[in-house]
């Protein structure tokens, strides 16, 4: 079965980048997309929470990525399936991710950062 991935980001461009990089790791991966926290919860519920990975932006239309993670976990999604994929380098946010048990992954911020970003995602995928 190809892995199923839910990508949530208010930026279409950011979703394109994440999808492209995940495809380099798993060419057959299946994707669903959401552009807000609310849509993320709706898509997850609509598909029976059957995603292998939830890649969530932090700064998106409420609920933000952290709150969305908490809500997904309340609905039974294991923390090790959730990653906050963000440009935010905040220590507060890293602490919060650690506390929740979800992964914190820095977004690619330049073309040179795509390969390291792929490695960060690969490390997350291999956790589960």
């Amino acid at each position: 079965m190809p892995p199923k991935c839910l990508i949530a980001d208010d930026s279409l461009y950011a979703r394109m980048v994440v999808k492209d990089v995940v495809r380099r790791i798993y060419p057959a991966a299946e994707f669903h997309e959401a552009s807000s926290g609310e849509q993320t919860l709706s898509v997850a519920e609509g598909t029976g929470y059957e995603f292998d990975w939830y890649l969530l932006d932090v700064n998106m239309t409420p609920p933000d990525g952290v709150e969305t993670s908490k809500m997904l976990m309340e609905r039974g999604v294991p923390a090790n399936k959730i990653a906050l994929v963000t440009g935010n380098r905040s220590f507060n946010l890293m602490d919060e991710a650690n506390l929740l048990g979800v992964q914190y992954i820095n977004k690619a911020i330049s073309p040179e950062d795509v390969d390291p970003f792929m490695e960060r995602l690969r490390a997350f995928f291999s956790r589960g």
Partner: peptide
Amino acid sequence: ESLNLGLG
């Protein structure tokens, strides 16, 4: 997105 990253 780029401005968001920069400001972040």
